[in-house]
Design a protein around this nucleic acid. Structure first.
Lengths: 337, 337
DNA sequence: TTGTAAGCGTTATCAC
DNA sequence: GTGATAACGCTTACAA
């Protein structure tokens, strides 16, 4: 491996001078600078950032931890994060927790050991508390993405889960639906709780009693659970509409409905949180509350870099990003409203 | 930051003993081992992998470079790669080139400087030659994913582009289509050339003349180019079917067709390479040659680790993964076959 | 079984 | 302007 000493020797200077040329620090005569640069080119020298990290105590590396790389919402978040990190000269260490606390914990170990400069962290759920506390103990700055974790104070980039949910449900109500099911993520996740609140709020405003039978919980990552749907369809008064708390759940419900010979929206209407990426281009069908996923990532990295710069003195900040209602064709008005 | 010296002092041993306990090397009495472990727990010690990397000349980090994080094919590749890397204790540095040679070049700089142990590299195209040569110069092992680059000899994980294309086109021919358009990626990309060959082979076998007018090139990442479709539709004898060389192009074509009031498959049939992720679950509509994306990533990392282990002596290997024809409903038989 | 010394490739500090 | 030296946190080689 070529080091600054190899360069130094060949250019007849000290290693220190080479270092100065590389970093553009200190005073250097134009002549030696040129000579050193020349030799660096010749030998294809590339600085060893491991060595640099060790002495500088800075890795120029951020970590991005998401919960579902299969979900277009998160891949778009990743894209925003990655673009922004690159723009500022940071590398991106990537992790996918699959909403699995064990995996998440392993990633935190790895993150701490790697001494990344900061972490963009989409928590698996409330049980991520320990992991985030561990980061705090090691003074690794982080910004939490998408989900709050009770007990953790930090910078946050969140969506307007409650508000978005309320608007989706109100949309269904306006079209005459009265039996609206909520297919939700785990109550262990803050967004699931908030979306449920939004759902309940909308019903309350419309003077419709909240019916526990209409609310089921699956994992945000599961599009294969048919039991939930069967339970809903088996009710004495089955729902005429389903509010799925995220895009993956919605896809699962629609698939299951179709497999049972039911049509969307003719037999059952469906709406959900988060857009679908390519699927929405292919067929703009599903009515959704679309979150600005790219912004989640981009603003998250921006906040993170500011936090790294400023240290813990800086006041904690929360960015709340609104979602946009995309009215498409997965909902039909109910004739006998 | 807590170092082995802090542990050593508090446990009344030398740093070396601490190192031995951490790495389970050398002989250590059970008593001291216990004492050292105890202190490490107390102080929440985590080894500094930067320091370790510097002395070991090994970062335990792989780099994954893909061309389109928006494409479900590549996110699934990433998932396979990530899972496998983690299983073997490797971290994953992530990059998204967007098929942009400039971005790709920047990533290669970053990769070389970071001294990752190996790279899983999906090249932007033939122009990636320089970048791969640069990796070779620095003796960084890599496995090329999805696309061959003329002039580079390396381990490879490829799909059966030619064969898959041929089968897709033969499927269309069997159903009576004679005017079949090819909407292809850039000829700068090996898969685009091979898919074109497969297309041509199928036509030849069926004694149908190859018609240059029916072949257009767009970027594999572009689902917004409407000009291509308009050109095809404007032909004296427009196509009755479109073979899109990847999923993104297919989505773009279908969108554009629908915007022009044309229906798939009633007016035009569409098939493509690569499946669509969630969109295919939501609505198994598009007939595709599905590639085993997860395997691309998983086997790629496996090959890469073997290469890292074995060094350049090991014979180069190519894994060719077959694709699976998924017959769905985006194709209709032509009555007047 | 444990410890000492040197070195991984870089930069900060101080001296010339 | 330029250079010598120590330090970043760890492990290898050798000594005790």
């Amino acid at each position: 491996m070529i080091t600054i000493y190899d360069i130094a020797k060949k250019a007849n200077v000290s290693a220190m001078t080479v270092s100065r040329v590389i970093n553009n620090t200190g005073k250097i005569s134009e002549a030696t600078r040129k000579r050193v640069k020349q030799v660096m080119e010749e030998l294809h020298y590339v600085p060893n950032s491991t060595a640099r990290s060790l002495v500088l105590q800075k890795t120029m590396m951020l970590s991005l931890l998401i919960t579902d790389i299969t979900n277009p919402f998160f891949t778009t978040v990743a894209r925003g994060a990655e673009d922004t990190a690159r723009k500022f000269g940071y590398k991106m260490l990537f992790g996918n927790s699959d909403e699995d606390y064990t995996k998440e914990s392993e990633y935190v170990d790895s993150i701490v050991s790697t001494r990344v400069d900061g972490v963009l962290f989409a928590p698996a759920g409330d049980g991520s508390l320990d992991h985030l506390t561990r980061l705090q103990k090691h003074r690794i700055p982080f910004v939490i993405l998408d989900r709050e974790v009770p007990g953790i104070e930090s910078d946050l980039v969140l969506g307007d889960s409650k508000e978005g949910a309320r608007r989706l449900v109100e949309h269904l109500l306006q079209l005459g639906h009265r039996r609206i099911a909520l297919v939700n993520g785990s109550p262990d996740v803050s967004t699931a709780r908030l979306r449920q609140q939004g759902y309940a709020d909308a019903l309350k405003l419309a003077d419709i009693p909240y019916d526990d039978e209409l609310v089921v919980h699956i994992s945000y990552r599961d599009f294969r659970d048919d039991g939930a749907l069967d339970r809903l369809l088996g009710l004495e008064r089955p729902p005429t509409a389903i509010f799925a708390a995220n895009n993956v759940l919605a896809v699962g419900m629609i698939r299951a409905l179709r497999e049972r010979g039911l049509r969307v929206p003719d037999d059952v209407s469906v709406v959900c949180f988060d857009d679908l990426g390519l699927a929405s281009v292919l067929d703009p069908f599903l009515t959704v509350a679309a979150q600005p996923a790219y912004q989640f990532g981009a603003l998250g990295v921006q906040m993170l870099l500011e936090r790294i710069e400023a240290g813990p003195e800086l006041q904690r900040r929360t960015i709340m990003l609104p979602s946009e209602l995309m009215l498409r064709s997965s909902v039909r008005p109910l004739a006998d409203a």
